[in-house]
């Protein structure tokens, strides 16, 4: 499993959201709160938006697939680090899950407008670095890093 990202440096900012199974509103709220908090810190609009998108997608993944989880947004050195940890079924094939359009979300999730199989791919596009580690039957840890100096969104090169 990935080592905690703050082991070697004290974070200068931290948000911490518990995310529970089926708490769909918590996912959107954590994204909105993240956006406001990062805006108040005066970060670049692109960094703020990409961070909020990653938080939204990561939180929705926990809500949809896991039994419980935790989401942290940390600013350490020159990066925003978003770390999502969950207890749940895990991802058996991460490479497959990263493919746009691949989804195991049930029908009712799709009716809400989610589960299109774009979450992980979108998180990758919005981050400068994305690491996903998972153990089937145990859970998943996801860590996304966004440089504070991010000039052009990686999404522009699609």
């Amino acid at each position: 499993m990935i080592e905690p990202c703050v082991s070697s440096a004290e974070p200068r900012f931290q948000l911490d959201y518990p995310i529970n199974e089926s708490d769909f509103l918590a996912a959107g709220e954590s994204a909105s709160k993240t956006k406001k908090a990062l805006q108040q810190l005066g970060l670049k609009p692109e960094v703020v938006k990409n961070s909020a998108i990653i938080v939204y997608e990561a939180a929705m993944n926990i809500v949809i697939h896991a039994t419980s989880g935790r989401l942290k947004v940390i600013i350490v050195r020159d990066e925003v680090v978003i770390r999502a940890e969950d207890t749940g079924p895990g991802i058996p094939d991460i490479e497959l899950a990263m493919q746009e359009g691949y989804s195991t979300a049930p029908h009712e999730i799709r009716e809400m407008g989610f589960g299109a199989g774009m979450g992980l791919a979108n998180m990758k596009h919005c981050s400068d670095e994305l690491i996903v580690e998972s153990e089937p039957g145990v859970g998943t840890i996801l860590e996304a890093r966004i440089h504070l100096g991010q000039k052009e969104s990686p999404r522009e090169i699609r």
Binding site: F24, A27, K35, I53, Y56, F114, G119, R155
Partner: peptide
Amino acid sequence: VSEMLAFAGSGNLIITSLKNPHVIHTAEV
């Protein structure tokens, strides 16, 4: 919602027939 988050970009008018709170959170984000 996933498509909005992936492709909408900033400053757009979002047009949707989805009526749930996620649309509003997504529009804010």
